[in-house]
Design a binder for these strands. Structure first.
Lengths: 161, 161
DNA sequence: CGATTTAAGGATAATCAATATCCTTAAATA
DNA sequence: TATTTAAGGATATTGATTATCCTTAAATCG
């Protein structure tokens, strides 16, 4: 079980969009080039962000994507779920129904105990992702990325905005 | 991102093995029939449990699998990791290295900030799974499964042990 | 107006992991 | 000696992920 590589891509894209001044957009082309990922396929992931109302878009030259909300109101969970979907990672196929001892009219009152536990763990994962905002990622990046690289990157991005 | 269906299978298998008296084994054939899953493929998953020392095996007639430890010392994480592996669900491809502004000799001191957050969430998931033992699953099942079905199932299993 | 740039989305192909089956080997039992 | 069993190698089959191409419609600008 591995998350789509698109998840990594859009998280980094959102970090970059977070650094943009108001009313500026970044195109798929620019985002793909900066991160060294395939433009067409990245585009599909960005469309997911757009459908989830995490980013908004505009067309034409100098068009592209910008964040639709303040960075403090966008969580990792929002972004991950936009790409991976909201369905739990554990799918219960209810194999208890295959128990040869069950009468044909047996009816379960609760979801399977195994599934409940697995879904609790899934929720713990989502809860952790929900607790981290894009704002806090940007804070961390600001500390981790060397000042000169940060500056050069900003200029590179601004030249394409 | 969806967990293998084998994870569901072996969790239910372990629950069944948990109900066995000492020195009794259940064969792949019996476990597969009880849960209505393909015997050959279930066998691959049970081999994983065996390699992880969660179960032990014996050959020959009346052979098969039994738990290698008390149910209080087997966690959901043990079982899930035996089948899914221990690698984090988020793979960091370090796409920050593709930043066109980086000098060729740039060297990162820390893992990528994005990856660290995703790995924290992964750990929250594993931590939750680690907190649930096979013993507590059996407790829950004892409450949830109707007494008559529980009894019939025990007899069905014991007849094949 | 017309050329260019852009996101959106449909269609389709390529790759790889998950699912599944078959077969051989060696150990335990009876 | 015949049977039952787990282990593991080999090999399909299926389905999700990854990737590319193309068309459409909107925004920009000369």
């Amino acid at each position: 079980m591995i998350l789509k590589s698109q998840v990594e891509w859009v998280l980094h894209c959102c970090a970059l969009l977070a650094g943009l001044p108001e009313n500026h957009y970044l195109s798929t082309k620019t985002l793909a080039e900066f991160h060294g990922v395939p433009k067409e396929y990245l585009s599909k992931a960005l469309q997911n962000l757009s459908q989830a109302a995490i980013v908004e878009t505009t067309l034409g030259p100098s068009g592209g994507y910008r964040l639709a909300r303040p960075t403090s109101e966008i969580t990792f969970l929002d972004i991950v779920e936009a790409v991976e979907g909201k369905s739990p990672t554990f799918v219960c196929n209810n194999i208890r129904e295959n128990n040869p001892c069950r009468s044909v009219d047996h009816c379960d009152t609760k979801p399977c105990s195994v599934a409940r536990i697995m879904w609790d763990a899934d929720e713990a994962w989502r809860s952790k992702l929900r607790s981290v905002t894009l704002a806090s990622l940007v804070e961390t990046l600001a500390k981790d990325v060397p000042a000169d690289l940060w500056k050069k990157s900003s200029e590179w991005v601004m030249a394409r905005t």
